[in-house]
Design a protein around this nucleic acid. Sequence first.
RNA 1: GCUGGAGUGGCGGAAUGGUAUACGCGUCGGUCUCAAAAACCGAUGUUCUAACGGGCGUGUGGGUUCGAUUCCCACCUCCAGCACCA
Length: 824
Amino acid sequence: MPYTTNDIRRVEEKWQSYWETHKIFKAEMNEKKQKYYVLEMFPYPSGKIHMGHVRNYTIADVIARYKMMRGFNVLHPMGYDAFGQPAENAAIKRGVSPSEWTYKCIDDMRIGLKKMGFSYDWDRELATCDTSYYTWNQWIFLKMAERGLAYKKASPVNWCPSCATTLANEEVIDGACWRCKNQVEQKDLDQWYLKITHYADELLEDLKKLNNWPSRVVAMQENWIGKSFGADIYFKVKGSDAMITVFTTRPDTIFGATYVTLAPEHPMVRKLAKGTAQEAAVEAFIKKSINVSKSPRMSGEERKEGVFTGGYAVNPVNGETIPVWTGDYVLMGYGTGAIMAVPTHDQRDFEFAREHKLPMRIVIQDPANKDITPEQMTQAYVDEGLLVNSAHFDGTPNEEAKQKIAQWMEKGHMGRVSVHWRLRDWLISRQRYWGTPIPMIYCTGCGIVPVPYADLPIKLPENAPITGEGGSPLAKVPEFVNVKCPNCGGEARRETDTMATFFDSSWYFLRYCSARNDREIFDAKEAKYWMPVDQYIGGIEHAILHLLYSRFFTKFLKDIGMVDVPEPFDRLLTQGMVLKDGEVMSKSKGNVVDPDEVIAKFGADTLRMFILFAAPPEDQLEWNPAGLEGNWRFINRVWNSVETRYAKGAVAGAVLDAQDKKLEFERHGAVKKVTDSMEGGFKFNTAISGVMVLVNAVDKYKVTVGNAHQQAMYNRAIETAVQLLAPFIPHAAEELWQMMGKTDRTVAGVAWPTYDEAALKTDTVKMVAQVNGKVRAEFEVPCDADEAYLRPIVLADESVQRHIAGKEIKKFIVVKNKLVSIVI
RNA sequence: GCUGGAGUGGCGGAAUGGUAUACGCGUCGGUCUCAAAAACCGAUGUUCUAACGGGCGUGUGGGUUCGAUUCCCACCUCCAGCACCA
């Protein structure tokens, strides 16, 4: 009887319900047991689960089940990243409330997750839009505000006119909104920021601890934080007391500075131009540069535009007077918004200088081209060399001069050694409804007053008009806005901005540690036990922001004594995309495969197995219906083997014949292979192939009718195969386990099989002989045979003889149990 | 440009110094059947040869080694991320 579609449905429903009612996967703190925390990046509840979710969570589930069989106390929770804009869009489009829409989606997702048979502790399920969760967002915000890490600042922000909201720098991609792809504008607004830069050094330093993260993720974070060493240099403005501070990573080139360039937004630009012939030109240039959204300015392909400001500055190291320009290739947001231009040794300065006919001076000599003049240069010389035209530094190697000149300037008050970062503070204000209200109050008398902790939570009002236009919906709810000042009792207004949703996902892994705690954010003792997350699994798209923010929050919560780990995620696995016909599966491309349909036909086990077997977890996975059927066939073969050839109660004898030994060899070998594949970085594809090899051997093993010994040998081998398959195809494994009469425990709770090295040793071994690196013959020889034994046998071989052909043997190399290499 | 990764049969992939292509898919042949499907058995890198046997073969070119998919050097191609960050 094959494993029919009806069997699949019956078996899968049976075991899903068994696991749930018996709370097989409930996690409880137990100091005596070693814990293992497996976590997948929780989903945004937008509807049903898709193949990307299925892959992500199947990977996590196999790890969780495997670790449980290995005896760990496993925490494997699930929840929903439930605040966000799609809920508001749905509200506008369909007239349902964001809350109603979101909870409906959560219900749909939960059904999909349960159908896959994932081993979650459902008692810890959470949704970030629940008041019981976002209360603690507000708590964290207030704690940060107390320490000056949450602050309000008027500043130019990225404004998406289509979404009518501000965006973090991270949410602007090539000058467009990451969500709606419309052009982003610059606008001055009062906004809340989190001071992530306070942790810049720690966030960078501690990357060294993340040895079990993919190197590219670490590299991306390093890049994003962007620490640059160099010097700030002070240029006096000619004819005034004003000063321009520039930042450079190349203080060794200071004697080659032939002009200074300011970002168009730099406050000195207008001051310098005032009253000069350049005033009108400068004004026009500022207008043009600032109004143009960031994208063309940042694209790097544009010609470098700029104008002379009309002012001059003095190079502090040589007293030289040089012109001050403003140019669009200098960014206000990095460094000091001002640079010293050294066209001979910086490609951007070189292009700008050529474009605007500015002077150049060589200060680092190209050893291969010593006599070149600036006029002959076709590009900046940016490699190493000795300093020239640099007063008493002439002849110094430039790498050495970087430090020497910076220190010399610092001593002479011409500048100072400095460090600048790319990382900026995190803008979290959103003019949106479906998010956590920021717990702040504006009082005309007292100014900005934090909501007292006792007044939390500040609940989202249910009746806010959501139109997608005209700013924050909360501002249109008078009962929400109008409030008494907690300080003086006078009339006051609530903050109507909500928090960016990345805030919610920056600490949810901590909430899972005690998800039902209604007295505090989480139980510190539970967090101490469960943290850090041992294995985190998710998409590469979160390599920078989500992971950086989570690391930031963990460091903050450590500083206030809530957690004791410096980093939240010990190991990180970034799973690859699911493709169909070479393209990423997506609704917009119309090439999605619905997990539900696959489950209906082949079952969740087959789907799980296909996804794990078809590619290593980090690689892209090409959807392949034929492969899926192959995996279904395999499950069927195992099912048939148990159903038709397994017989309970057989007892093995003590003596093993050659066939028995071969089977035991395969059985122990498979345990080793699967265990090694799991331990060595979760190579599920090779783990599964290991079980397939065993099943092939089991099928070949012959049981003579009535031979109890052989029956017992057979039983043992197929039992091991089912155990090894339990993490991968849990439903079928449970059913087979039961069919084999193992009713005292579920296979999910049974111990992972072990192997015996002795069983992997055979009496004889096949060896090959190479002559000059080419295989010429095969031999069956006793295990561990040495050269004295092998030499006469190998040399007597006809094929070996032919290839030696009377020539002198220079070397005779024996690699134990593998090969003999003869060199002639 | 910078950073990270990858290049192996018809396809997904395996092997991290020792018989390249495990395992699966596909294809071909066979058994069973009135027939088909399913299932099972066998073959399957390429090339020369009637056969026995041999040559070639892991992106390209070098190197180290008795032996290289694996280590080293140079290059090519592709993918991903960042990008006028001074």
